[in-house]
Each structure stands twice: as structure tokens, then as C-alpha cells.
Amino acid sequence: MTKSAAQEHASPPSSLPAYVFRGPAYVTIRTRTNDQPKYVDTRLNVWTWYDGGTAMNIDWSGLKLSSEFVEIAKAFMAHMLEKYSPSTAYRAARMLHRVSESDISLKFPWAAEEIISAFNSWNSSREYVVVFRTLYRWVMDRGIAGFSNDIYLKIKDFKTERSSPYSRIFLSQSGLELDEEILLLKRIERQSLTDSWEDVQFNIVLHLGFELAPRSI
């Protein structure tokens, strides 16, 4: 590949300073019980949170990632912890671990071909690919250097493999997209504008359905 061709496929260089995470020291999280911490201390090397008594964490010092991308990843994790359920946020942590184990771990910014190669090394795992695309879009929308719309469109078109002809049926029954989950949580937490028992009853059933519904592995 010639130099000009390589430049065409890679993210455009930027003269902007490297991104630094300057988020809140404590990120408030959604908890299901009142006997567990309701925040994550982002000043620590290990971020720990709980879901129904189960501890989850991400050890930043243990990840083999470029220093610039670590700062970006911290901002994304803080966003996930604040906006989504603890278990959904943990999907992002698992994805970052997978990135740390891949060939792109210390490379940044990435070319589209490098990201797609990483996807293939993950055996096209749907969960990791979807969360990585969510991260890429989230960062790109905030104008952080090293991400481009052209690369996003290429990785958006990447098709994940399904394990059997019936996988689509099972997947459609087992989970929500990230934007769907936050809309549902907002609906559950919304205060009723009336004293209608039917409205209260519906909200109870909706809440129970969300808490007891099956989650993807």
C-alpha cells in the first residue's frame, strides 16, 4: 500500500491536544437496592460498582491500552454508568477488556481495516461489536480527535455471525438496544400525573417486567 493510500484509510491526523478525562470524581449509578454504594469513585485505578449485591469492576492499570484511548474510555464508562443499568455498563467494561487483548490495543487512532480485523478476531461476537460501535459513535458525536464518520460507517456495516438459524429469534427475545433501555427506565421513573390506579398498576408491571426479563449472556 502506498503512503497516500495508507493515509486515505487512516483517521486524519489532528493538531488538537490529546483528550483528558475530567469527569466528576463520583458518578452516580442506578442501583436496585439501598444497601449498596450508589456511586463510583473515578479517581481510583479500579472502578467498582454493584448490581444486586454482585460486584463489578474495571481495572484501568491492568488494561493494555494506549494512554490517550484510556482517557477516552474512562469518559465513555462514566457515561455508561450514569445513564444505564450496572449490568449494561459492565458490557462496556468487557468490551474494553477485549480491545485490550486485541492487536489494536496500543494503536490509536485506528484505521477501519484495523478495527474490522479486531472484530474478526473476536469471532464477530455481537455484544462486543455493538458496544464498540456505540463507543465510537458516542465519542465521534463529541468531536474528540481520532474518530471519523467514514470509519464509523464502515464498522457500522460490519455483519456479525449468528451461531444457528434460530439465533435471531432468541436474540430478539432477550435484550434491548442501549437507547431503548434508557427510554424504558425514564418511563418507569416518571411520576404519574394522575392518581389513576390503572396508571400506577401499569408502571408496576412495566418495572417488574424490566427487572425480571432475561438478559443476554
Rank of each mutant, 00 (worst) to 15 (best):
M1K: 03
K3Q: 13
A6N: 15
A6S: 15
Q7M: 14
A10E: 14
S11W: 08
P12S: 15
Y19T: 07
V20D: 11
F21P: 07
R22I: 02
R22W: 05
G23A: 01
G23K: 05
Y26P: 01
Y26E: 12
T28Q: 11
I29C: 08
T31P: 02
R32T: 13
T33V: 11
T33N: 15
P37D: 13
K38Q: 13
K38T: 14
D41V: 06
W47V: 00
Y50M: 05
Y50L: 09
D51L: 07
D51S: 13
D51C: 14
G52E: 10
G53S: 05
A55N: 11
I58R: 03
I58K: 00
I58V: 15
W60T: 05
S61M: 04
F69K: 02
F69S: 07
V70N: 00
A73H: 07
A73N: 00
F76M: 07
M77D: 08
E82C: 02
S85K: 13
T88R: 15
T88E: 10
T88K: 11
R91W: 15
A93E: 02
V99D: 00
S100P: 10
S102K: 04
I104E: 02
I104T: 10
S105A: 13
K107F: 04
P109A: 08
W110M: 04
A112P: 01
E113I: 02
I115Y: 06
I115Q: 03
I115E: 04
F119N: 01
W122E: 07
E127C: 02
E127Q: 10
Y128G: 03
V129T: 13
V131K: 05
V131H: 06
F132R: 01
T134E: 11
T134A: 10
Y136M: 05
Y136F: 12
Y136T: 03
V139K: 03
M140S: 12
G146L: 06
S148Y: 01
S148D: 11
N149L: 15
I151N: 08
T160C: 15
T160L: 03
E161K: 15
S163R: 11
S163T: 08
S164D: 15
S164K: 05
I169K: 08
S172K: 14
S174W: 07
S174E: 05
G175C: 09
E177K: 13
L178W: 12
E181R: 08
L183V: 11
L183M: 10
L185T: 05
K186C: 08
R187P: 06
R187F: 12
R187N: 13
T194A: 05
S196D: 14
E198K: 06
E198F: 07
D199V: 00
V200N: 06
Q201G: 04
F202L: 00
F202T: 00
N203Q: 14
I204P: 00
I204G: 03
L208T: 11
F210P: 03
E211V: 14
L212S: 14
P214G: 06
